[in-house]
Structures are given as structure tokens and as C-alpha cells.
Design a protein around this nucleic acid. Sequence first.
DNA 1: GAGTTATGTTTTTTT
DNA 2: AACATAACTC
Length: 690
Amino acid sequence: MLNDKQEVAVKYKDGPLLVFAGAGSGKTKVLTNRIAYLIEHHNISPYNILAITFTNKAAGEMRSRLYDLIGDVSKNVLTSTFHSFGLRILREYYSYLGYLKNFIIMDSEDSLSIVKKILKELNLDSKIYNPHAIRSKISSNKNELIMPNEYKKFVHNDFDEVVLNVYQKYQDMLFKNNSVDFDDLLILPIRLFHENSEILDKYQERYKYILIDEYQDTNEAQYVLTKMISSKYRNLCVVGDNDQAIYGFRNANYKNILNFEKDFKDCKVVLLEENYRSTKAILNAANSVIKNNTLRKDKKLWSNNDEGEKLTYYRAYNEIDESQFVVREIKNLLEKGTNYQDIVVLYRTNAQSQIIERTFVESSIPYKIVGSIQFYGRKEIKDLLAYLKLIYNPSDGISLERIINVPKRGIGLKTISNLRQKSDEEKTTMFDAIVGGKEYEFKKMILELIEFSKNVTLTELVDIVLDKTGMKKELEAEHTLEADIRLENLEEFKSITKSFEEKDGIVSLDDFLYEVSLLSDVNDYKNDPNRVSLMTVHAVKGLEFDYVFIVGLEEGIFPHINSMMDKNELEEERRLCYVAITRARKKVYLTNAKMRLLYGRDQVNVASRFVGEIDENLIDNVSRTMDQPKKLEKKTYDEDIYFELGDKVVHDKYGKGIVVEVTNTLVAIAFSKEYGIRKLLKNHKSIKKL
DNA sequence: GAGTTATGTTTTTTT
DNA sequence: AACATAACTC
């Protein structure tokens, strides 16, 4: 059931192959069928095949579809993201690069705090030298394979000078803590291969057939790594769509895909332009937007599908009205027999999810937020992970600093800075620098935990850590709603470690830490059936849904204000919009708001230019023509019911309860045992004061 | 050293 | 508005 073009791509055996695959043109199908064909018809060993994707989700998707095609054999094909592939290499050859076996991965937040510490050390004002900007510049350099020494050539001003200085210290600090950052996962393997041709040769022999998905989103480091490994056998198949390049900010260079034909002069090129996913209306809308980009290779997706429904456009009065419209339309869809899981709400920035969440809670619409840091970014989870990291790698000074006083142990900034200084002078780790004082108790505890870690399962270790460190006790003693939620999250964490253990048997601390470090989304480990998905447009790439809502289509939001000055960035925003529209199978809803609460102020926004770029006759405008709706629930908290701790209330469903916590928007009420403590919106109609 | 208040900053997107 | 950091008290 492949079309002619797809078949060519699937059956082409040796040599470089470039597949331009438009949205919904069966890209994953081609990739999986190609792998299956290599194994079954060309007799290639699955061990010799490497398939690279961009996200864990995409890798999982590929794995399961491959399994459906060829069964157990598929498990011997390595399907991984660039970063986890790099990690795999490092875990084998760390010693060649001077690292110890128990190196750990610093996440973005850790990297940022390293930058901040260095700035402080250099006595530089973080107001003048923005730590975010510096970190991002360092990361760019690394992804462009510009090491501190080479960066010297690019230093033109005071800021660059600081970046250079911090960059050098940053690299030293990572190394000293026996740790690597995300970017290192790509560039250290490159260095390894440069310095050890025999290891490179081994990888070239191992992965004779390489496939890369979303090639338009590769950056220089990924490009070089790919080129190195594939250069011997040149069986490199790359798949992508330059109209869907949306990671420029991460130094992805969509020209990599346009230059592929130059890099590999003898390459075979296949164009997939037939879309099997969307209706004609959706596709035409997407095309009419993307054609406004000038920096592109012209192609036009077409479809044999039905014309389908027009796109619905709603210009709301404000962001509340907007999300209420989304709810109304979702309810309509449900009545027609649609499942929650066939619906997705897309937004440009994570911050926009809040109001939608709030409205969904009010309207009891089950939802899940996909791909935000919501879980692994929480303080209690990061603290716990820091303990686990420190147990695994006591050289990790960043984690040590994070938790040496969590829970409070009377160890303050003074002690910590003394320790840091001492470790600098004695050229040792902070952990080893501890010899006495209150902090010695901490050290003893960690040493004890290290002993434990050798003999217990992962889940047991988590329990022991929570217990011995006093984290659990502290939270239990608080008796606040917030503490209860934190405890729940820690329990949730244990269910994650458990599911690891169920999947893989005994899980070692290192395997767990490495995997979790590359995991941004807890949803990867849960499948939540039948909920509406909420995510950013970036996160939705590669997925498809029957019904797609794109909200916040306003100038300044989408396209984002920071992208509006630069033509390249603006075109990336347009590609983003193109990606969003082409996710839909059946129907697209476009919404925006005349007024929106932003940075704590009401801001008036005009409609996004992208809406205007869509052919008028493809759009059904259902905006209210009359003036603002009479009674709109604005966030006027003053008008909320006033709750005090201990107030007695009654809820429509949960019955009588007592107020145990009050925040700006929410109130927590302890109901009978059956329902427990529930967090509710203050002004929800179901609550009444007694 | 810990807790409270004042002040300033933030929001783009992610492996 | 929410959050982080700095400054200020106890």
C-alpha cells in the first residue's frame, strides 16, 4: 500500500538518499517500511541499522510501528534520539575523554546555575550580563562546534569577552564535577571520533545503514556526527521537510537538508507531496500560509481527500472568552461522538496553557498537558533527583549545593562558599572537602545512602532517601496543601521508578538517571487515555489529531514579538503555523483575543497576520459581531467569595467540608474521607459558604 | 542562619 | 501576575 514515490524510497538500497516528505505524506511509514525492507529483502542485519529521531516520543512511535511490521527482530534496530545515541557512546568511552564512569548529565537549569555562580565568582553583575543570554550563547557555540579557543576569534565586544571568560570556566566546572551538559552529548562523541579513528571505524562498521528523521532540524554538531559515522558506507537516508524547520533557535540549520544534494552529489532524491492526512480545505489553508515565505524550496502538497469543512475562526473579546469558546466547541464535538483524545489545543508559549487549564477544570473537561516541564521541573522532584545524582556521583557539586541544606540543616551560604573555596584550593571535589561541622553529618548521611544504594532496588532507594534525608518528614509536618501536593508528586515519582522496574527488571541507578535526564515529559511513561491534549506547537510536531485548535493567533504572540524584527525568525514562525495547521485530519479552529492579560496587564492585540494569509473562502468566521458579552468572568479576585481557614462550606458533589488553604485563585477544602482534600476554584458555582 | 519584605524581571520555542 | 533575587530584620 505504498505509492510509487514511497516505494522508491523504501526499496532504494545503497548510497545516499534524500526524501523530501511534506506533512502527512507518510514519512514514518516510509522510514519503518524501509528498515523492514532492508532486513527482509536486502538481508541486512538489524544490528547494522541506526534510526535517529528528534524526540523520545517519535523514537517510541517508530519502534512500535516497526514492531508491528516485523515483530521481535525490530528490537535489534537501534532507534534513538541524537542525544541518547551520544550518551550511549559516552557510556562506553568516557575514559577516553577523561571522564569517570559515574559522570552525570546537567540539565538546562543546572547549566544556568553554573553560569550564575561563575558570574558571581567573577564579580559581574547579572543585571548587566544576563545569565540566560550567556548560557544560550555558550550552548550555541557548542552546537556550532566552536570551542573556547576558537571563540576568541569571534570576540568583538565587552559582552563577548564575558561570554568567553564564562565559557572557559563553565567547561572547567562541568569537567571538574564529572558531568556533561546536553550539548556535550553531541560534541564529545565527535571529539572521541576525531582522536580515535579506530573507535570511529568501529561505529562505521556497526551502523552501515543510517536513517535520520526531521533532518531539517539538525544542527552543525548533529550534522558532523552523522557525516562521520556514515562516511565509510554512505548508506545515509535523511527525511525531512524544510517547511517544517522550527528549531532555528536551537541552532538547527534547515540548509542542511537543502545542501544534502551538494554534500552527496550522487544522492537519490525522492519527493513525497501527496498528503494522506488532511482534508483539502486544511491543506489549502496551510499552503496559502506557507507560500508567503520567500526563503523556501517551492513545493505544493496536494490531497485526494474530501474538501472537508472550512476552518472556523473566532475572534474573542479576551482570553477567557477565547478559552470558553474552545470549551463550547469541544462540547459540540463530543456530542457528535468525538473522543477527547482526538482533540488537541495548540499554543505558541507554555504560559498560555494556564487559562485553558483553568477553563477546562471549570468545565470538567479532562486534559493532559504534553511536554512541559511540569513534573521533572518541580522543586521536590529536582531535590530528590539531586540526592540520587549525588549518591551516584559524589563529585557533582551542583547537586550537592542544591540539597546540602534541604531540608534545612542549618548549613548556610557561608558554609557553602567556604566549601567551594576549599575545594578550589585543594583541587578536590566539594564532597571531599567536607571534613567537619554540621556538613559532616550530611556527608555521613550521603555515604550511608551510597552503601544502601548497592543493595536495594531503585524504588526502595527512593524510599530510603526520602526517609533518611528527612524530606518526607518535613513535608508531612507542614500540613499544608502545597506540602501534600509535593508528597503526592514524590509518590508519583516512585510509580515512575516502579514502572521502570516492571519494564526492565532490576534497574540500576545509573540506567535510571541517564534515562530520566533525557526525558522531558512524564507523559512518556503514562498513557492517559481519552483526554484532550494541550501542548505547544513545537511539541506537536510529528503528531496528528482529528480536531486541532490553534489559540492565541495574535501579532506579538503568534508570531511571537521577539521574532517580528527578523525576517528569518518571522518565517520560522510561519513554518510553525504551517506545522500547527497540518496536524489536523478533519478540522482546524483558529482563535485569538482582542484583549489579553499579559505580564499582569491587559494588552490589546490585533489578529495574527497568519490568519489573514489564509484564503477567505476557506474560513468560516464565527466571531461575535455585537459588542462585548454582557457578563464576562474577568479575573477580579476582589469579587471572589471571601474564604478564611476553617470556614465551613458545602459543595454540590462532595458535600460538606472545611477550608484548609486559600490562594489567590484557589481554595483547598477538606471534605469527607471519601473525597479528601480538593483544590477548587474560589468562585466556582458548586461551592457555597455555610 | 532563617524568615520577611522590597525590588526587579520575566515569557518563546526544547533535546 | 508570578517568580526570583537582594536587602533587611530577628
